[in-house]
Amino acid sequence: MRLPRSVTEMLLAGAVLSGFALAGSALVAYVHQQTRARIAANESAATRRLLDDILPPGRHDNDMVRDTLQVTAPEMLGSEAPLTVYRARRNGKPVAAVLTVVAPDGYNGAIRLLVGIARGGELLGVRVLSEHETPGLGDRIEAGKSDWIRQFRGRSLGDPPQAQWRVRKDGGAFDQLTGATITPRAIVKAVRGSLIYFRRHRTELFRKQDTD
């Protein structure tokens, strides 16, 4: 039986198209295979660099990138999705936790932060993971661009008192940035939220990995 000419042509076109789809997928799969390990290493190296910046390596002896926990607390940590907590230990005893926190109300979308908190509830440091703030104004929250983010070091929920956890413009204790108030406001709020979260959940945060 002979198929009509138009049908064979269609089938042929379909075959050629699927051939290309297959070849394209093969190329992508091959490159993925070749780069996967390197990409994973890059990502954990980048995280490790940030963690080391918050918490000098001498204070703990575990690999924080491997000692993690996923937590979800939308009201305090600003995200519906699970966020990673990195735990620092020395001789197996908890030293500090570094929380991934989202400030959802940045000037230009969500700002992701790393907030390092010592076991006693004192801030070790805050660093920006990702932001889309205005270049030259809001983006001075980055540690590489100004010292603003370093003012959190050593603070805790009682210092300043909770009512003072605002930017100066709102009657609080924290400096804003010249020309940018919304960004610092969002960050102060996010840092305070993570301190409250830490106080409420400290024991659970340091529990050994439950199931892995």
Binding site: A23, L27, V28, H32, R38, I39
Partner: peptide
């Protein structure tokens, strides 16, 4: 064939871009 050239071009371009993206992620993170 003439009729399917555009989808084929798009497939080719998309595959190369994905490959370039992964390579950049690996070497210029």
């Amino acid at each position: 064939r003439e009729e399917i050239r555009i989808p084929v071009f798009v497939l080719i371009i998309a595959s190369f871009v994905t490959a370039v993206e992964m390579a950049m992620n690996a070497y210029f993170h």
